Amino acid sequence: MKRFLAASVFLSAQLMVGSLSAGPNQDFTLVNKTGYVIDKVFVSPAHSDDWENDVLGRETMDDGEEVPIHFSRGIKTCSWDLKVVYEVDNSSAVWHDIDLCSVSKISIFWNQSSGQTTAKYE
């Protein structure tokens, strides 16, 4: 019984260490409420010089769609930048320093009268 209990405690400790060393989960759901089709989505560590690969996981994202964004990075940071590129004219919108350790949903909007794209974090 003592060996079983000791093995259980050891296994529990190993699982806790493994989950801590895995780093934060930066996955989120992106909601397109811009009125336009999004062609590409990029996520990079905050203020990085490289956007790397499109993480959309599909060809395009229609207006009104919600898409889960999953990406695996070895970087253990919570602060990320987001860039979306629109299909219609290849223009883009960028947001900096999003805390993806606490944000699970990002909804983006385009305001026609101001000409600005904004984001709401949940």
Rank of each mutant, 00 (worst) to 15 (best):
L15I: 15
M16A: 13
V17D: 04
V17C: 07
G18W: 02
S19Y: 07
L20I: 11
L20Q: 09
S21E: 00
S21N: 05
S21F: 01
A22F: 01
A22V: 02
G23A: 05
G23L: 03
G23N: 00
P24A: 03
P24N: 04
P24V: 00
N25V: 01
N25R: 00
Q26E: 03
D27N: 15
D27T: 10
D27E: 12
F28D: 04
F28N: 06
F28R: 05
T29P: 13
T29C: 01
L30K: 07
L30M: 11
V31S: 12
N32T: 14
N32D: 15
N32V: 12
K33W: 11
K33Y: 13
T34N: 11
G35A: 14
G35I: 14
V37H: 03
V37T: 15
D39R: 08
K40N: 15
K40Q: 15
V41Y: 02
V41Q: 04
F42M: 03
F42D: 03
V43Y: 01
S44D: 05
P45S: 13
A46I: 13
A46E: 05
A46K: 07
H47P: 01
H47R: 14
S48H: 08
D49W: 14
D49C: 05
D49G: 08
D50I: 15
W51R: 06
W51Y: 13
E52T: 15
E52C: 06
N53L: 13
V55R: 05
L56Y: 04
G57R: 09
R58S: 15
R58A: 15
E59Y: 07
E59V: 15
T60R: 12
T60A: 08
M61H: 05
D62M: 12
D62L: 11
D63F: 04
D63M: 04
G64R: 08
G64A: 10
G64I: 11
E66I: 04
V67N: 07
V67H: 03
P68H: 05
P68F: 03
P68A: 08
I69L: 05
H70Q: 14
S72A: 06
R73E: 12
R73Y: 05
R73N: 11
G74W: 01
I75V: 14
I75D: 06
I75P: 00
K76D: 03
T77V: 14
T77Y: 02
C78Q: 05
C78P: 10
C78L: 02
S79L: 04
S79N: 07
W80R: 04
W80Y: 14
D81N: 08
D81H: 10
L82K: 02
L82E: 04
K83L: 15
K83Y: 11
V84S: 05
V85M: 12
V85Q: 06
Y86Q: 02
E87V: 09
E87S: 12
E87A: 10
E87H: 08
V88A: 06
V88C: 04
V88I: 14
D89F: 12
N90R: 13
N90C: 09
N90S: 14
S91T: 13
S92M: 10
S92I: 11
S92Q: 13
A93G: 11
V94Q: 01
V94I: 14
W95L: 03
H96D: 07
H96I: 07
D97R: 09
I98R: 00
D99N: 13
D99S: 10
D99A: 05
D99V: 00
D99W: 01
L100Q: 01
V103H: 00
S104Y: 08
K105W: 06
K105G: 01
I106Q: 00
I106T: 02
S107P: 10
S107Y: 08
I108N: 07
